[in-house]
């Protein structure tokens, strides 16, 4: 059994949209019976984050990619950060991919 993965949700301020995304993702994870540790943070702190997965909006891709992100971290970018379908389609395979 793999360790419980950590997922960080990233937005500009680290308390509004990232948290909204985290709430939606937690429901998606629960419905798939996937356990994960979820956190949220602002994009300015992304450089120092130790995590398994980072979830953010497409609009933050340029900022996030400026940082030297640990290549072992899986990056997931969403067009609509509160769209459960998109979260399901992208986050679930990302987590399953890590287990494999």
């Amino acid at each position: 059994m793999a360790n419980t993965p950590t997922i960080y949700f990233i937005c500009g301020a680290g308390l509004g949209s990232s948290l909204a995304c985290q709430m939606e993702a937690e429901e998606v994870l629960a419905s798939h019976k996937i356990r994960a540790k979820t956190e949220h943070e602002s994009v300015s702190s992304v450089g120092g984050i130790k995590t398994d997965v980072i979830v953010s909006a497409e609009s933050f891709r340029p900022q996030i990619e400026k940082y030297d992100i640990d290549p072992s971290i899986t990056l997931v970018y969403l067009h609509n950060i509160v769209d459960k379908d998109e979260i399901t389609q992208k986050l679930i395979p990302a987590l399953e991919g890590r287990e494999a």
């Binding site: 500009g12 301020a13 909204a20 994009v43 609009s59 933050f60 609509n80 950060i81």
Partner: peptide
């Protein structure tokens, strides 16, 4: 925040959540 990161605060069709760091 919007100037820097774009209009990502528009979270759903027709709805924006304006906010910044505390």
């Amino acid at each position: 925040v919007v100037d820097r990161f774009g209009p990502y605060i528009v979270l759903a069709p027709g709805v924006a959540l304006a906010h910044a760091q505390p």
